[in-house]
């Protein structure tokens, strides 16, 4: 038994969400024809098809690039601290790819081990994610290599599957998804959208993890990542990268403490007050990124910190990214590339 919605009705529903004061985030065509996940002003901006993946990720819905965590005021010699309430505006993400949605349950581990991050959790609870199952891929897609696929449901509250004649099959995954489309769909027993196989599997994560365990000091890191510029485009656009900086912005009267996106690819990221830097060269920073995603995070939280979306490679000015790095690692592990 399938439930379907006509595209026009879906767009009307998006406008209804906006009219209700909800924040709606979806793929839009930005300048230069680049597709970006961005807040919508009207459903007419929404682009659901005709592209493989947006140039960024949906993580801004739960982890904004800049967020005030408290404010402070100087009163003579006293300092007055004030809490900032977490933003719990209802947010609907529409048109995300399954690889974007899959990042959310992965990030839940980090923001809830030991200290529970109230800012992340408030946004996460207020966010409903509606994905569109993939029918198109490019050479950079590798979701099937990290245990996901074109209709993987992890992190989705509801999934849309493109049916013929301007219809979408709607599959509710969670109660939030069911509530969102309650009364908006039509039963259509005859429609059952087939799911494609997805991109071919490109590497085995067990092989990668074994290599990472045994080759921390390998010269392969230098050889493989030599061309990395350290720009951080991979990390900023990655749905799972979550490193942040904390800075105070203020003056003699007071100010605010702000959490900002950061990246392990930046040279200043780990530099000590003394000037010593444990990750002094780019190869060490790349090693950290790959180790974090495919060994440290799985060891610590039981989940790979990568959903195979390929956004890192699409944004990389030197065509590196996770996939190319891992394929090179796999080649070194097989012995088909010699480390100099």
């Amino acid at each position: 038994m399938s439930d379907v919605i006509a595209k026009d009705d879906l767009l009307r529903l998006v406008d209804q969400w906006l009219a209700e004061g909800k924040r709606v985030l979806g793929p839009v065509k930005a300048g230069d024809g680049v597709i970006l996940y961005a807040p919508l002003a009207a459903s007419s901006q929404l682009v659901l098809e005709g592209f493989v993946h947006a140039a960024n990720s949906i993580k801004e819905a739960v982890f904004p690039r800049s967020e005030t965590i408290y404010t402070y005021k100087f009163n003579g010699h006293e300092i007055e601290l004030s809490d900032v309430d977490p933003d719990s505006t209802q947010c609907i993400v529409i048109g995300a790819r399954p690889c974007d949605a899959a990042s959310l349950p992965v990030l839940d581990h980090l923001f809830n081990w030991d200290y529970k991050d109230k800012f992340y959790n408030a946004r996460r609870a207020a966010t409903t994610v509606v994905t569109v199952a993939c029918s198109e891929y490019d050479d950079n897609c590798f979701c099937t290599s990290v245990g996901l696929g074109p209709a993987a449901e992890q992190g989705s509250d509801a999934m849309l599957l493109k049916a013929p004649d301007g219809w979408y099959e709607v599959r509710a995954v969670t109660d939030k998804g069911t509530a969102l489309f309650n009364g908006k769909t039509t039963p259509a027993p005859e429609i059952k959208v087939p799911i494609s196989d997805g991109p071919a599997k490109k590497f085995d994560t067990v092989d990668i993890e074994t290599f990472l365990k045994n080759n921390y000091e390998s010269d392969a890191w230098r050889d493989i990542t030599m061309r990395c510029l350290g720009c951080g485009a991979c990390a900023y656009n990655c749905p799972t990268c979550h490193c942040f900086d904390i800075v105070d912005e203020g003056d003699a009267a007071g100010g605010r403490r702000v959490k900002n996106w950061d990246s392990c690819q930046f040279g200043q990221f780990t530099v000590h007050a003394s000037g010593h830097n444990p990750r002094a060269v780019q190869a060490q920073r790349q090693r950290q990124r790959i180790q974090h995603k495919f060994r440290i995070y799985p060891e610590k939280f039981g989940a790979i910190l990568c959903t195979g979306c390929g956004t890192c490679t699409r944004n990389c000015p030197v065509s590196l990214g996770v996939l190319n790095t891992l394929e090179a690692i796999a080649a070194v592990a097989r012995g088909s590339i010699e480390v100099k």
Partner: peptide, 14 residues
């Protein structure tokens, strides 16, 4: 002496 920012195991640098 690893550099820290959050001190609560989140910010990813230490």
């Amino acid at each position: 002496e690893n550099r820290m920012k959050c001190g609560i195991g989140k910010c990813g640098r230490c």
